[in-house]
Write a protein that binds this DNA or RNA. Sequence first.
RNA 1: GCCUCUGUAGCUCAGCUGGUAGAGCAGGGGACUGAAAAUCCCCGUGUCGGUGGUUCGACUCCGCCCGGAGGCA
Length: 305
Amino acid sequence: MKPRVIAVGGPTATGKTALGVLLAKTLAGEVVSCDSMQVYEGMIVGTAAPTAEEMEGIPHHMIGVVDPAVSFSVADYCAMAAPILADIHARGRLPIVVGGTGLYMDCLLSGMTFLEQEDTGEVRRQLWEQDGEELWKRLAALDPQAASSIHPANKKRVIRALEVVLTTGETMTARATRQLTAESPYEVMKLCLDLADREALRARCDQRVDEMMRRGLLEEVEGLLRRPELRGATAFQGIGYKELAAFLDGALPLDRAVEDIKTATKKYAKRQRTWFGRDKTAFWYCRDRMDGQAIIDDFRQHNLL
RNA sequence: GCCUCUGUAGCUCAGCUGGUAGAGCAGGGGACUGAAAAUCCCCGUGUCGGUGGUUCGACUCCGCCCGGAGGCA
């Protein structure tokens, strides 16, 4: 019998955090955050990281565990989170993986083990100087399979695939197969949250941004930027952070920056819906039709918990 | 009251000398294996303010009406 894991995914602003805590309380579990931005230390308001009060005494993992200057990746996430899952299981408790970063969640839950890889920074920098179309043609020659699944305009992904072949001598396609385990090591129960009313979700995204501003997002960003090296860090690709950094640079007025954050949040929610929607084994619940307790009860009724 | 400019997709606007309209943004759909809150792909029929006219044919020309902006009184 494989160890069980409960996962909570779905678009932002649908109440994943609260449901995670409720599940943990009900099932003697601990929450493992699955969020590419919450991992960074000091990025609290802008990532809507749960406060001590919201955690309600439930242990939370993978929040604020990396310095924001460090460029974190899926591989790093899995390397850190997998042992945490093992530890929670070892203590006889249930891990509840909660978050909106679909890629991280899928990789962690499928038990993917990333192969060792040397630093590709230099190769990557060189490739970025070159013409995207040319790079894609080069990729087509070296790893036709990867090229066929990556649009030539998607320079970032074309380069990633290229740097893999160039630095490892193995195609990304081949590595991907080697990295993927035949079967997930966990018995996963995934539930995704959404709002049936799209307009309502967009409104909630807007409210959430206003709320973050009220809670001091600007101050948080200012504080982080006292370290100028963070300006270009991966952490500053986070929604809210990059826009306010632009405002602090004088590139745009504050109200415009806030507008941009709202728009970015809504687009992000849409991408998340697409990502999580791919997993046909997930159970979807609309938060505007059911509260947390009702969802858990429903799950119980289906003997899923 | 008179004069000038203006009224085109949810928003900002293109549409040359007449042949029934197109961009950006927003929005929708999708992809996604080491930056993923990132990166990228696909999707634009709207009484062209209204109404009369000129014309084979008007968003494009003319008249009037309605709504904006500015100027002169």
